[in-house]
Amino acid sequence: MNILVCIKRVPLTGGKISLTTDAQAIDTRLMGFTISPHEECAVEEAVRLVEKHGGAATVLTLGPVDAAEQLRDAMAIGIERAIHLESDGREFDPVATANAIVEAIRADGATFDLLLFGNEAADTGDFQVGVRVAYALGLPCMTGIKEISVNGNQVTAKREIPGGWEIFDAPLPAVITVKEGINLPRYPSLPGRLKAKKKPLATTQPAWQDGGLQKIKLLNPPEEAHQVEILGKGPEAAPRVVDLLAELGLL
């Protein structure tokens, strides 16, 4: 089967988020970058499905020049080729992102049996790009999926709900947005990384457009005044911890 997996490059934020002085972005000067967590699992799932059913997988991203790094990471674990929709650094909103992806899929010409997305990007959390792409291509869509099994022209997908699972069924081709936990992504091997350098990566520059959700600025949530009470050092602090448990009525 032929699979397309769409990913996003996001900063590794650590303990605190600092903004740029114009409040338009996160100050990433001292940060590393990664594939957004749900999409990292989408990449792994694509590789596993190809290992099981044959075919090939393609990875696509919309992002700055440096997002090529995340495409190479995906190819290092077994994706065959990459499509880079290179942005000029400006953020594309969900409508603009979906439009650019749909245009790229049409231009690419390949027919995909399955299109995988993350349920939502770690940074913008828009919850809609995969769904919009599905409608533009006339495909069924299932979101928030943690298990996929393909049987011929049908796909069964499981979504976790409180206390159990919902089981969805749809015909292929289809769009599925996945959640972390669907698998445990492998680490790229050194030979995998070397191979990835030689795999094909096509780059185009889609035009930025206003899709109707325009960022004005980013802001840190108001911080509550905060004081930590040190109960002690090492195991000698245990009696004070248990006093606290008693105070809170947890003993």
Binding site: E229, I230, G232
Partner: peptide, 21 residues
């Protein structure tokens, strides 16, 4: 910066001490 209470120490010693207490 988020915690209300803290114990500075190695959890491998602190947690068993709490259980014992």
């Amino acid at each position: 910066f988020k915690a209300d209470y803290a114990v500075i120490g190695d959890l491998h010693q602190v947690v068993p001490a709490i259980c014992a207490e």
